[in-house]
């Protein structure tokens, strides 16, 4: 066995890795924001008394959760192409990741909504709040606080899964690594470095979500207890 590692030629390409990592974070950020919006709407839709609305949301969730991400990415990529629509790989990747994470987020947020006791909603109804006001003030915020750990894990997973978009040449971290290793013939070193960068990105995201949690959940910040 002769293990001969040479990181020098990899590390000197750090600006390339940095750009890739930045793109990965951008993809994760966009998909997290839009995915959260889809998740909230999807969860409201799944709980709707309107059978068609709840059915459509259910089909969306099941279709996404039972197909591989890579296939979903190709479907968006080739689907848009066959409609004659030309988008950059980045837009396609962001769209596919959003659609993907939106389904998982829908399920997580729905679980949060379902965990709000009926009495909370009755109290709000008794105070004459409208349905929208009840959803916003009494259901959504405590629900999100309760499922925040699952939600943030899902978004970190999404950031890691975004490496799959290298398949459609989105210039994110893994795609960049593929170029570098084919250039330098230092595949093992490249992916060791890339793995480390992904770990750093995960830590950055977790820290960001922790800070965000302090801002948007003042009760938790003050009391430190789970809701």
């Amino acid at each position: 066995m002769n293990l001969n590692l040479d990181f020098a030629s990899i590390i000197e390409r750090w600006p390339t890795f940095f750009d890739g990592a930045l793109l990965t974070l951008q993809l994760a950020f966009i998909a997290t924001m839009l995915g959260t919006a889809i998740g909230v709407l999807g969860a409201i839709g799944r709980r709707s008394h309107h059978p068609i609305v709840s059915r459509i949301c259910g089909i969306y969730v099941e279709a996404i959760r039972n197909t591989p991400l890579l296939v979903q990415i190709f479907l968006v990529y080739f689907g848009l192409a066959s409609l004659g629509l030309k988008f950059s790989a980045f837009v396609v990747a962001a769209a596919a990741l959003t659609i993907n994470v939106g389904a998982y987020t829908t399920e997580i947020i729905r679980a949060g909504f379902d965990s709000i006791p009926r009495g909370q909603i009755e109290a709000a109804e008794g105070l004459a709040l409208s349905r929208a006001q009840i959803y916003w003030h009494v259901v959504m915020w405590p629900a999100i606080e309760k499922v925040y750990p699952s939600l943030t894990s899902q978004f970190v997973l999404l950031m890691l899964a975004s490496s799959v978009t290298s398949q459609i040449s989105a210039e994110e971290l893994t795609a960049v690594a593929n170029y570098v290793q084919s250039d330098t013939y230092r595949a093992f070193e490249t992916y060791i470095l890339v793995a480390l960068v992904y770990i750093v990105l995960s830590l950055i995201m977790r820290a960001g979500f922790w800070l965000l949690g302090l801002v948007i959940f003042p009760r938790r910040r003050r009391l430190g207890t789970p809701l």
Binding site: P117, G119, Q120, E122, A123, A124, G126, H137, V138, W141, P142, E145, F217, R219, L227
Partner: peptide, 13 residues
């Protein structure tokens, strides 16, 4: 009409 319940139902957050 104001209504008060057995289980208080204050909004915990």
């Amino acid at each position: 009409v104001g209504i008060v319940f057995q289980s208080y139902n204050l909004f915990p957050h």
